[in-house]
Design a protein around this nucleic acid. Structure first.
Lengths: 229, 229
DNA sequence: CCAAAAGTGTTTGTACTACACCCATGT
DNA sequence: ACATGGGTGTAGTACAAACACTTTTGG
């Protein structure tokens, strides 16, 4: 056991963010092209280093904000990665976070500044270091989470149609869902507000728009209601 | 974004282990009495620092082995804790791991050497730093995991009775279970080997002993069988 | 009037829950 | 013979899955 801290090895702590978005059809992740060594020019997750005065959550927040201009979205710690030579330049432990954002909210100037680009999950390029594994883990965590908590709303604009919501869940879970069963389940949850407005872009008839009712959701969650999809 | 690693802040990386055991009646955790500063004399989780040549999993393994003499048991990363002043002595990020061991296997000499002691969850003392939160998280992770994967076997001796198994699940989930329903579910899973042997200690009639059939379990898991209790 | 998407219920099967009595044995 | 824990089955209910037709409206 350790009696003296000073003799211990220190390491750099990186925070890497898997940023999920949804563009009406597909689940996507935001990647940047590195303009610095090592692995300059390759695709990677957006990352940065933990600073003295901040904790990991704050670092993740800062990094997300730097790239997208967005704050206060769903952002959760995923896992820590520590292979000895995962970063060839220096011993670095990386703590991965994943975020869910409404793809329309991100700041395109910033995206350009970092040569960032949205990729659909299936078409993403290979990433540096162990970032591919991080993305895999993040997807499976997202799948798990959305299957017991209606997380996906974070990925949609404030007003959305049932069809969009269903498409979102289909793309997260990577399987087709039955329209009627899906709507029935959502209705049983009773956490949406049906608006009078219709979205007229998708059809002649038009489809009703809904909003997520955060208060109702919180109440129900507090009561122990189960949201299994 | 960062162009130069050398200017970045480094930190110490600790690994703290929540070690779960089961003593036929109750779920317990193994705690040590610190014999070094800071917080000397207080109860804490067993921990240590990450070394240059090892990754976090290996460090957790090493720490578990140091305290209990045990290797090759269930050991999984839980979460990383990074509050700026969580350790007053120096900036330290701690990665928590939780382990499940058969309480009979641990080496008592080592336990003594570290002034370690098993505490039932409800009677554990307050711990240093943020260790109490770690334990809380570990319990909820354990509950979740055991509810969809028959993890608990790690906590039992190789041969056990249905009653023991049920008691174990009851103490993990912290609720009473119905005997017949429990046995029915376990039997549907079909992952136990019923032995001819009986345990004669608990009753005059004696109760049959079972073993966990790891191969069957792996096969079923690979086939996507769901083990929800 | 037709094409295209929206919207809507019922039936069937499966899984979970609740529940009580007989069995085997050592003293 | 009895006290102690071991072992066993079923009926009722709730939840999930499968499934197809009608409505609306712009062109």
């Amino acid at each position: 056991m350790i009696n003296n801290y000073s003799s211990e090895d220190k390491a750099l702590l990186a925070v890497d963010c898997i940023i999920f978005g949804f563009d009406k059809e597909e689940l996507k992740i935001l990647l940047i092209k590195r303009d610095f060594a090592p692995e300059k020019g390759k695709w990677s997750l957006m990352g940065g280093f933990l600073k003295k005065h901040e904790n990991l959550d704050q670092a993740a927040d800062r990094i997300l904000k730097t790239l997208t201009g967005i704050n206060n979205v769903f952002l959760e710690q995923l896992h820590s990665y520590s292979k000895v030579d995962r970063d060839p330049a220096e011993r670095t432990i990386s703590v991965a976070y994943y975020a869910l954002i409404n793809i329309e909210d991100h700041n395109e100037e910033l995206t350009e500044q970092f040569s960032a680009q949205w990729f659909s999950i299936s078409e993403a390029p290979n990433l540096i270091f162990d970032h591919d594994i991080m993305v895999k883990h993040a997807i499976s965590r997202l799948r798990y989470k959305t299957s017991k908590e209606p997380l996906g709303f974070e990925l949609l604009p404030p007003k959305f149609t049932m069809k969009q919501l269903q498409k979102l869940y289909e793309s997260i879970l990577n399987e087709k869902l039955d329209k009627r069963n899906f709507i029935n389940k959502i209705n049983v949850m009773d956490i949406l507000i049906k608006l009078d407005e219709k979205d007229m872009n998708s059809s002649r008839k038009g489809s009703f728009l809904y909003m997520f009712d955060e208060n109702k959701y919180k109440t129900k969650k507090a009561e122990g209601f189960s949201f299994r999809l």
